[in-house]
């Protein structure tokens, strides 16, 4: 005697049913169940309807003419330099910048790692140094200004130095990068910067808090991590 299929059992077969992958035996059981179960029959019909409607979706037009942007990119001026092609030049230049960025990231990341590791190991129960409200400013070539506590630890200072270098690198590479990605990065950096500022403000009130120190350290590390990622982004969406 064949046992009747339950809704639970049919649910397990539903995906295969829609794909036409049921065995003959499963097909018979499923059909019998569908004849007597309105819930499963309706579910199956609705899913088939969605698949059918998807095939009939109309085309969508962009809200603006995209051709000008395409034309600008494919009609970039050709610089005649002997037999070298336009694409070859651009590609080599971009690759050089990316390679330089990679070298810088490796160098700065290494320095930061050594300093921060040494600092953390030397002072596991690091006490904040934020008694004084004095700040110092580090200006980089890209116009970025970092405001840090005057008694910044070696670890924090290492992070700050790397941030300055990475921000300069990001500015240099900005024209080659996908604007949406850069915007996303900037938003993330703003959030992290805010977290750093809040951590430092909290530490000023409670310099001995290991938790706040750890939070600040994590936020500084996060900022450097995001900037390293940004500095090594591939050109455009390629």
């Amino acid at each position: 005697m064949t046992q009747r299929m339950t809704c639970h059992e049919y649910d397990a077969l539903l995906a295969g049913d829609l794909e036409g992958e049921l065995s003959p035996e499963e097909r018979r059981s499923a059909d019998a169940h569908l004849l007597e179960c309105g819930r499963c029959a309706a579910l199956r019909a609705e899913l088939l309807q969605i698949a059918a409607a998807a095939r009939e979706l109309p085309l969508i037009s962009p809200s603006r003419d995209l051709w000008d942007g395409i034309a600008a990119r494919i009609e970039a001026p050709v610089i005649a330099l002997g037999p070298t092609t336009e694409r070859g030049i651009g590609r080599r230049q971009r690759l050089w910048v990316v390679a330089a960025a990679a070298a810088l990231v490796v160098a700065t990341a290494g320095t930061t790692y050594v300093i921060t590791k040494a600092t953390v190991e030397a002072n596991q129960s690091q006490v904040a140094r934020a008694e004084s409200g004095a700040t110092r400013r580090i200006d980089d070539s890209a116009g970025t200004t970092l405001v840090t506590n005057s008694q910044t630890s070696p670890a924090d200072a290492a992070f700050d130095r790397e941030v300055v270098q990475l921000r300069a690198l990001l500015e240099q590479r900005r024209p080659d990068l996908d604007s949406a990605t850069v915007a996303l990065l900037e938003r993330n950096l703003q959030i992290i910067d805010q977290a750093i500022a809040e951590s430092r403000a909290a530490l000023a009130k409670d310099p001995g808090s290991a938790l706040l120190n750890r939070q600040l350290h994590n936020a500084l590390g996060k900022r450097v991590q995001v900037l390293r990622t940004a500095a090594l982004l591939p050109v455009g969406t390629n």
């Binding site: 962009p62 603006r64 995209l66 942007g69 395409i70 990119r73 996908d178 949406a180 969406t237």
Partner: peptide, 14 residues
Amino acid sequence: DRTMAEELTQDVFV
């Protein structure tokens, strides 16, 4: 996302 789609469309044709 339509905005991203516009950029991607341009990328495709380039």
